[in-house]
Design a protein around this nucleic acid. Structure first.
Lengths: 349, 349
DNA sequence: GTGAAAGCGCTAACAC
DNA sequence: GTGTTAGCGCTTTCAC
């Protein structure tokens, strides 16, 4: 009824009288030492089995819950990890980070860890700094990697273990990612096999490592097909609706009949732009995306896309950071599978 | 592995040989008691100003950072709040919860609190239970309210303060919300003034309080216009693409010329559905939404919608939960403004 | 197998 | 104004 937190600061509420059950009162009431209680709970150390049973069942009926803060202080662990989420346009528009957060949370929760979120706006990692400074977490997961990443640079200077979701050339980072390079190479290969007249790539921001990887995969497929990347067919920085709109004339002029979009945000905008201009998909032009959010599938027509298993990405990252925290050895590079979903938006070969 | 962090605000500051700088070592090195250090830092209690200065500057140069866990144990506060996020279709599709999380985080962070996320799947609030049981947070924010809400029922039994984003008839809850009732009444009034032949409401799930409110606002506007709700014109549970598709024939038959969508998910699907069926907006039919996510604005044509200020919603909820934790009095009902954005998707009156 | 005691790093009476 | 002292609730040597 009263929503007010009444706690110790007000002496009228005798919380401790019989309120909080602690290891201490249990020990007293059971006539054993608190060490014994601790051992019964943790299972560590030697303890007689009937003593343990007695303690355990008593704890059960008393509804005792260990105080994690006290444990934290004793073992210097917080049982929290931080997940750093970006917050530019992409964060608000594609569900990728949301899905990451979700799957990471599900994963670490099974090992009794919790997730503290930190929002990073561009290069501003002050939120992360605060969390680390205050020692709120035992490890962190970065959900995106940019060129010259400030969070990475910062975390390197600390002793806090971290893993990144995303790929980096830097092999010293613990990273988990889809193989964007191979995936995009495959998508491109498929596209090339369909013999389009003119394939163009609508690319994102060069600062994102993932975009570089995708571009490299795209290029590799061209090379494998004996072609060379036509730089006039690659449009970087298609990061706003206006930018896309502005290159449309160029696309029309070259009679591009296959648009490869580097991610779903770009793809969504491209589709809207085509529609506004009365172009049909795949009638007038085929469209393919290098990333598959649910939107792509639900679009009309459904968009051919490279599918990333975000759940697995997050679960893996969660597992790894906990292993790292536990001092276990982990692989530096961790890849999760991808799928290639050929749908109606592109011509069959 | 040593998980202890180095307190480095500047990369220059070397970690003290023996690990962490504590209030204790500072006291010893400065030849004062730790109480004095504590007072200098907190500003509480009496302390000579030159002593304070001495301590403060020493702390500065030593790069000392108080250990929050120790403080937590001492004052029994965690300096964390939980934000409960739902995870059914809506969570993945509309950016509302994401935006809430973001704005809440920004807000509480300014008071040195952090956000622990908890994902609730439908009625399953085991994640929240765990967090509360482990005493990981001082308060919680619920970002959605459903009928017979399990999280609310659970939290009521605890001493943990909480606020809900969303409205409830239950006046004992601390709630912050947009006035959906008034907003939707206004939108509907606007629609009615445009003299459509047939206005239909594509509604969501009755279990969500917000949907009830919206429906009531819709009804009130009709009543004010001397009309009665035509129950044949209200389609509930438009929660899937298939459901919407299935009522399209009925809409065509009644020659509905204005579709009022109860939320953006519905609206997005309705638009896709119309497009698939060759219906143009607003040429063949006007479309209006009771909620305005960025998608609505970017759509072609832009969709007339009720705009909710999610940033303010989250910031208010954050402010209130912290006030509650601090034992301050707060208003039970907190409303943040809404806006009504008439855009191209609906006919001018 | 069990217990005593010393912390973990901080806050908060209560003296002086 | 400053210091003393006792916790907060748990873990962890080290004796017995």
């Amino acid at each position: 009824m009263n929503n007010r937190l009444r706690n110790e600061t007000t002496q009228e509420t005798p919380v401790s009288a019989q309120g909080a059950v602690t290891i201490n009162v249990i020990a007293r009431e059971l006539g054993v030492s608190k060490t014994t209680i601790s051992r019964a709970i943790s299972g560590k150390g030697r303890i007689g089995s009937e003593t343990r049973e007695k303690v355990l069942s008593y704890i059960q009926e008393r509804g005792y819950q260990p105080n994690l803060i006290a444990k934290s202080l004793a073992v210097s662990r917080t049982f929290n990890i931080a997940v750093v989420l970006p917050t530019d346009t992409e964060f608000d528009e594609i569900p990728f980070f949301q899905a990451c957060l979700h799957s990471i949370t599900d994963e670490v929760t099974t090992r009794d860890y919790d997730v503290v979120v930190s929002i990073a706006t561009g290069d501003d990692i002050s939120g992360l700094r605060r969390i680390i400074r205050n020692q709120k977490v035992d490890g962190v997961i970065l959900t995106r990697l940019v060129a010259d990443d400030k969070a990475v640079a910062f975390l390197r200077e600390t002793d806090v273990p971290f893993v990144v979701i995303g790929s980096s050339a830097d092999g010293s980072l613990v990273q988990v990612d889809t193989d964007h390079y191979a995936g995009c190479r495959e998508v491109t290969k498929h596209v090339l096999a369909a013999n389009y007249r003119d394939v163009v790539l609508l690319a994102g921001n060069r600062d994102h490592q993932v975009n570089k990887d995708r571009f490299d995969g795209f290029s590799a497929a061209l090379a494998a097909a004996g072609k060379r990347v036509d730089y006039g067919a690659v449009f970087w920085d298609m990061t706003s609706r206006a930018r896309i709109e502005s290159v449309l004339p160029a696309l029309m002029e070259r009679k591009a009949d296959c648009l490869v979009c580097m991610d779903d945000v770009i793809c969504g905008r491209v589709l809207a732009c085509l529609q506004r201009n009365g172009l049909s998909v795949p009638g007038d032009v085929s469209v393919v995306s290098f990333h598959d959010s649910p939107v792509m599938e639900l679009h009309n027509p459904p968009i051919t896309a490279l599918h990333v298993n975000v759940r697995e990405l997050g679960a893996t990252a969660g597992r790894i950071i906990l292993d790292l925290i536990d001092g276990k050895d982990v692989a530096r590079r961790n890849r999760v599978g991808y799928g290639f979903l050929v749908r109606e938006s592109s011509r069959a070969q």
